[in-house]
Design a protein around this nucleic acid. Sequence first.
DNA 1: GTGTCCCTCCTCGGC
DNA 2: GGAGGGACAC
Length: 749
Amino acid sequence: MALLDHLNSPQLAAVTLDPQHHALVLAGAGSGKTRVLTLRMAWLMQQGLVGPGGILAVTFTNKAAREMVTRMTALLPISPRGMWIGTFHGLCNRMLRAHHRDAGLPSTFQILDIADQLSAIKRVLKAHQIDDEKYPPKQVQRFINAAKEEGLRPGQTEAHDSFHRRLDEIYDLYQTQCNREGVVDFAELLLRSHELLQQQAAVREHYQRRFRHILVDEFQDTNRLQYRWLKLLAGGGASVFAVGDDDQSIYAFRGANVGNMSEFERDFAGPHLIRLEQNYRSFGHILDSANALIANNDGRLGKNLWTDRGEGEPIRVAETVSDAAEAQWVLSEIQSLVAEGRLRREIAILYRSNAQSRAFEHALFSAQVPYKVYGGLRFFERQEVKHALAYLRLMENPHDDTAFLRVVNFPTRGIGARTLEQLGDVARERGSSLYGAVALVAGKGGANLARFVELVDRLRFETTGLTLPELVDHVLQHSGLRQHYEQEKDGSDRLENLDELIPAAAAFIDEGPMPDFDGDGVIAEPLPDDAMPALAAFLSHAALEAGDNQAADGQDAVQLMTIHAAKGLEFEAVFITGLEEGLFPHENSAVDPAGLEEERRLMYVAITRARERLYLGYTQSRMLHGQTRYPMRSRFFDELPESCLKWLTPRQPAWAQGAEARRAAWEESDWSPRPRASAAGASGGLASAGGIMVGEQHFRVGQSVHHARFGEGVILALQGSGTQAQAQIRFADAGTKTLALGVAKLEAR
DNA sequence: GTGTCCCTCCTCGGC
DNA sequence: GGAGGGACAC
């Protein structure tokens, strides 16, 4: 059958697995994962084993979902309309819209993005006079989201001390506020949807009957709640086809639980485990390096990538004197690659943190090499766009206090902090929204508030019956936003973005009618056919899909991005830069073994992005937080097979690395490296990474230490010697401290 | 009520 | 080094 041509045998086994069986597909980088996933769906339908309505396919990003739909429709002449293919959040939103009453939500519920959520939390703290220094909003936000991702409601979190009991109370206050305002945050979409399925038998049974095949992409990135949601949906006998790679799990820091992979094996009674290990992307040296590196991690499910493409070029490594020099090196290599005829868009510069992009941008810009930086603010996250959306949200749901506060005095209309404080007090007393309390504020402030409410009501009234793009245009014009940015100096960029909302709305409408929330209409309620659902859907879209961060200009440009952003992508040539202790592995992650393993997986992801050429760079000195650091080269170099590497600069022994070595070299004005007495015996290998002796103790950068008061930490930098010796140490709980090694009692770990 | 300066803090980031 | 938030002057 044409559908199955050119598949290797594990791929074929996965695609044509008995439809009754569950499967866990361990799909290595570049092993044809997306192809297997889409072919599996196509095969099931082509064999008549399931119709489009019986499939639920879930991904993490909108991009991945779109790609799946595109590939699918290329394989089979079907409309993806009846199919549930989307992100976890997108699908949960769809379910909650259809069953909002059963889920206890207003039909007009709005979605808070992370920024909206943070401002909602700040309001909670303020309204209840909670000290925001003791309970920093960001920390409260992390606590709430982590609790929700574990499926925990207020009162159910582990409150073993007064601090956490208070956090739990704040969580409760926050949730009450969200419920009153009719808003849900991202984690709430998941949690509500899970509770809906759990508590409403009719809804649960409906979807369990409907979905016969559940497919999950990037399964290693699922959190506990997402896994429970899947389990609940599969509870009616559906087959689950989970595809993932434990070695590419790089999102534990935001709640991903790789443990779901082994749990899946248990819960689904030993599913068929299929390994896709043949790599169609990279040459041998690249894969050998990736395999050797990742072998240093414990508890892997186990997998070894191989290729029949041959060894290819060695991996080129360079040490440079500074971050600027590193950028110059990368630039000159890129110029040679381009001269050889490679496309710039096939070349990627990868880094651990966004701050590193500046040096590369500077070098590329000066040399007039086109480049594109990924990351940063995206369209729907821009201030001016969020302002416009806030007006739209208020028209849809006037009790959305977050939206209210964002624009109540923007553009300024004489409503200040004092007036808003009064308004807040009144609203709290009456338990109403800010909008609902406006009439009770007297005086000049009250009159201004009344004018604002009139404006919103008028906008709603005037736009009835308009199409979505017309509606948006009207609001931009009559809210005063457009005039505001016209008058503002340097406001032209913002004005452009603002106006871009109109075509964005038009494009949204063109993408097709609103998804029928549930095609069979048995449970879902029919929706009225006027502009309001379009607006509601558009607002969901804006929250769930923040849009591109930069318009694609079609120019052939070098790609700059973090390694996280590069996951899932591939390039002919890849530069992995800033391979230094403290940066990569990052100092915040090096304190515990789990963090270090995640850094190693990140390095694994970075290496496996390259098809033909791979370059590794590190530097002797780097500007970080406005300070110059003298880092050691990354420990990951010691985990790569020497036979795969080609050093473009001499490989310096480990003792010649780091601050102490630089200081010594400078003081002695002696650039011929030789071992120093303090590091005698150091001759390569992990344990010998330079450092200094203080009394009987030997310290080195990257070492884990214990301090009686500050707890566990890791040495970031060393300076001085003997009684003058100091160490900069990052402690897990106490932050970064500079300690005198002769005085501080440190235990080596 | 509004605008400006200074102080702080600092990974990775999709939905 | 640079963004964002709070304190303070107009």
